[in-house]
Computed example of a mutant assay.
Amino acid sequence: MKSNNNYEDYEDLTLPYDEEDKEHLHQPSKYDIALGKYETNLDDDKIARETAALIEKHLSENDTAEVKKFLFHCIDLTTLKCTDSEQSVMKFTEKVNEFDDKYPDLDNVAAICVYPNMAEIVNDTLEADHVNIACVSGGFPSSQTFTEVKVAETAMALHAGADEIDIVIPVGKFLEGDYEGMCDEIEELKEVCGDKHLKVILETGALKTASNIKKASILSMYSGADFIKTSTGKENPAATPEAAYVMCNAIKEYHRETGRKIGFKPAGGINTVKDALTYYTIVKEVLGKEWLNNQLFRLGTSRLANLLLSDILGQETKFF
Rank of each mutant, 00 (worst) to 15 (best):
E20A: 08
G269L: 10
N4R: 15
H255S: 05
N5K: 15
G268M: 06
K102G: 08
D18F: 15
I270H: 02
E257V: 03
S217Q: 06
K30A: 09
P241L: 06
P237L: 03
P141E: 04
N108L: 00
N249G: 10
Q144P: 07
L106R: 02
N271Q: 12
M1H: 12
K57R: 07
E98P: 04
A48H: 15
Y280W: 10
K102C: 09
L158T: 12
F227W: 12
K68M: 10
D311P: 11
M182P: 03
V246K: 00
S143D: 14
D43N: 03
N132M: 13
K265I: 09
L25H: 12
W291K: 02
L77K: 09
A53S: 09
G288P: 09
T145I: 06
V286Q: 05
S29P: 10
V149P: 09
N236K: 10
D43G: 01
E120T: 14
T278C: 02
K95L: 12
E61I: 08
L126C: 07
L198N: 00
N117F: 15
E39R: 03
H197F: 14
T240Y: 01
A210K: 02
G269A: 06
F320N: 01
V273K: 04
I121R: 11
A216N: 06
F174H: 06
L158N: 05
Y103W: 03
T278R: 01
F92T: 02
Q315I: 11
V96A: 15
F319M: 02
L126N: 03
T83G: 13
A111P: 11
E50N: 05
H26I: 12
I169K: 01
H197W: 14
E86K: 15
I47L: 05
I121F: 10
I55M: 03
G269Q: 12
A162P: 12
Y103V: 01
A48R: 13
M247G: 02
Y31L: 01
A160P: 13
K229Y: 15
C248A: 04
E257H: 08
C113G: 02
T78S: 06
D100K: 00
D107L: 04
L42M: 05
S142W: 11
E290P: 08
K95G: 10
L304K: 02
A238K: 05
T154I: 10
K215H: 11
P241H: 10
E11I: 14
T317V: 07
D166H: 08
E66R: 01
W291F: 09
G269M: 09
K289C: 06
I262G: 05
A157N: 10
H130I: 03
W291Q: 00
V246Q: 00
K102L: 11
K289L: 09
L292G: 01
K68Q: 10
H197K: 08
S142P: 05
I33M: 02
I121N: 05
K102I: 09
P16G: 07
R298F: 13
S3Y: 11
G194E: 13
V136G: 07
D44R: 03
T154N: 07
K150D: 13
G177V: 10
S217Y: 09
E253Y: 08
E188P: 04
I75H: 01
D184A: 04
K261W: 15
F227I: 00
K190A: 07
A267M: 12
G314F: 14
M1N: 03
A210G: 09
K68V: 04
T278H: 07
E285F: 08
G259W: 14
